[in-house]
Amino acid sequence: MSSTFDQIATIIAETCDIPRDTITPESHAIDDLGIDSLDFLDIAFAIDKAFGIKMPLEKWTQEVNDGKATTEQYFVLKNLAARIDELVAAKNASPGA
C-alpha cells in the first residue's frame, strides 16, 4: 500500500500536470510547485474522495491569515500528509466509522 505522501503526490502530478519526480516530501505546494488556489480546489476534491475525509481548508486558511499557523504547516507535502493521516485516524475513531 502506498504512503499518504505517495498518494497525494500522484494526485498533484495528475491534477496539475507536474512531473511526479519533481514532487518531494519537502515540496511546498504553493511556493515550490506553483499550485494556485483554483488548482488546489481540484486537489482537495481528489484527496477528500481518495481518503474519505473533508480537509478543513477554510479553517487552515483562517489560521494562516490570523497568524496562528504558517503555510508550511499545511502546504509542505510531508506536513499535508501528516494532517491527512490525522483526519483519517479521527474519522476511523469516530462512533459512526
Binding site: A44, F45, K49
Partner: peptide, 9 residues
C-alpha cells in the same frame, strides 16, 4: 457530488 470545505462539486 461532493461537499468540501468552502467548495462543492
Amino acid at each position: 457530488e461532493h461537499e468540501g470545505s468552502g467548495f462543492a462539486v
